[in-house]
């Protein structure tokens, strides 16, 4: 589904990603862990097409297509979803209007008929139940005045609405309370199937109890320096990152 080859990227003239290689197949869950500032969010943003980041080398194919040939909105409509580490607020734009536009843009792209207002609201009700998001929230402006946890929940709600092929969840677990973590994880699990894939960026093994990864990668200084099964997460939880740095001879 996603093939990243020798990817380099910089921001503000500074090299952040320094040769990423990663292959994600349909049906898989990958977890990416790594110290603060190692480039996890940068990778997510580069994949999603943020123009702040300049790709200087490497290729990424997504479902057989060259990802860098597509603008950010096309990538989204091709099925790439990013749950933001820091979702932005858009004052005055209602969640309902925002999502209705988003859903219908996806449908248009795939030559489907736009949803009627009634059908859209029905779909929204269904998905709201899935992540147990408060109706009050969806009646407000996009993320405006949402608490940290509410913003994260709202990201997963949008994911449920858009049903992406590849979801990249950037620290969706941070800021969620214990119940919310369970609910959100359940939501993600319900959305999982053999045709889609998930990349989880997280600092904590706890999330991986709920959403069990097939692979765990350690991103360090812009490179994936270690990949293993889910047991790696326990090891990191226990020992931190120093031993990996040592392994790298630092």
């Amino acid at each position: 589904m996603l093939v990243i080859k020798d990817l380099y990227a910089k921001v503000e003239g500074k090299d952040i990603l320094k040769g990423i290689n990663l292959t994600v197949n349909a049906g898989e869950v990958h977890a990416i862990m790594g110290p603060n500032g190692s480039g996890k969010s940068t990778l997510a943003n580069v994949l999603a097409g943020h123009t702040n980041f300049e790709v200087t080398h490497g290729t990424v194919t997504f479902n057989g297509k060259d990802l860098f040939e597509m603008s950010a909105d096309v990538r989204a409509k091709e099925g790439l979803f990013l749950s933001f580490q820091y979702p932005v607020e858009i004052p005055g734009v209602s969640m309902v209007n925002f999502l209705k536009t988003a859903v219908n843009e996806h449908r248009k792209y795939h030559n489907q008929k736009e949803l009627s207002a009634g059908d859209f609201l029905k779909l929204m009700r269904e998905k709201k139940a899935m992540v147990q998001i408060d109706s009050q929230l969806t009646n407000r402006s996009v993320n405006e005045g949402f608490s940290g946890g509410e913003k994260k929940k709202n990201e997963i709600f949008q994911m449920a609405m858009l049903e992406p092929k590849l979801a990249i969840l950037d620290e969706t677990d941070s800021g969620l309370d214990i119940d919310a973590l369970r609910i959100v994880s359940n939501g993600v699990n319900m959305l999982k199937n053999k045709d889609n894939a998930t990349i989880l960026v997280t600092h904590y093994q706890r999330l991986l109890d709920y959403i069990v990864p097939d692979f765990v990668h350690v991103l360090y200084e812009g490179r994936i320096v270690k990949s293993a099964g889910k047991e790696l997460a326990f090891e990191l939880e226990e020992k931190g990152y120093d031993w990996i740095k040592k392994e790298l001879g630092e």
Partner: peptide
């Protein structure tokens, strides 16, 4: 830019 990117990421073109 981040607001525009957020919309883009949900499939909404920059113009929209």
């Amino acid at each position: 830019e981040d607001q525009i990117f957020y919309c883009n990421q949900r499939g909404i073109s920059t113009e929209d």
